[in-house]
Design a protein around this nucleic acid. Structure first.
Length: 111
DNA sequence: AGTTTGACTGGAG
DNA sequence: CCTCCAGCCAAAC
């Protein structure tokens, strides 16, 4: 029994990236979600890193609220200080350590 | 075809 | 709370 997922085909990778972008477009204003949640919702729970890569390099991501994606502890993306500003503008609160207060602002997409 | 690289994650110290 | 560190895995080298 396979207890690990199959390696992605390039076709599956393409679909995964489409799903990621669609999911990001659904994050409500003033909320955030995580790379892991998005990967799981797209059907590949172990591909959180690929979610990050998709948002970083996909041109379409520019048109989406990708600033609403943070890591599992509420950490904003490395080298993108504007992300915090954008989130605070829509009311997302940060803790003293510079992380999003996930207790209040995490949006968990319905499966 | 082998190695390195991350917008990641969970756990250890 | 913070800093490694191992595991992760498609992509880029």
């Amino acid at each position: 029994m396979k207890d690990y997922p199959d390696k992605m085909t390039t076709e599956q990778a393409r679909m995964f990236q489409d799903d990621v972008l669609n999911i990001v477009g659904q994050i409500p204003r003033g909320m955030v979600t995580t790379y892991g949640h998005i990967a799981a919702l797209a059907g590949w729970p172990s591909h959180s890193r690929m979610v990050g890569r998709t948002l970083r390099y996909s041109p379409e991501a520019r048109l989406l609220p990708c600033h609403r994606v943070v890591n599992v502890v509420g950490r904003t993306a490395p080298g993108w200080s504007q992300q915090r500003v954008l989130l605070e503008e829509e009311g997302v609160g940060f803790k003293a350590n510079g992380h999003v207060d996930m207790k209040r602002y995490l949006w968990e997409p319905l499966l």
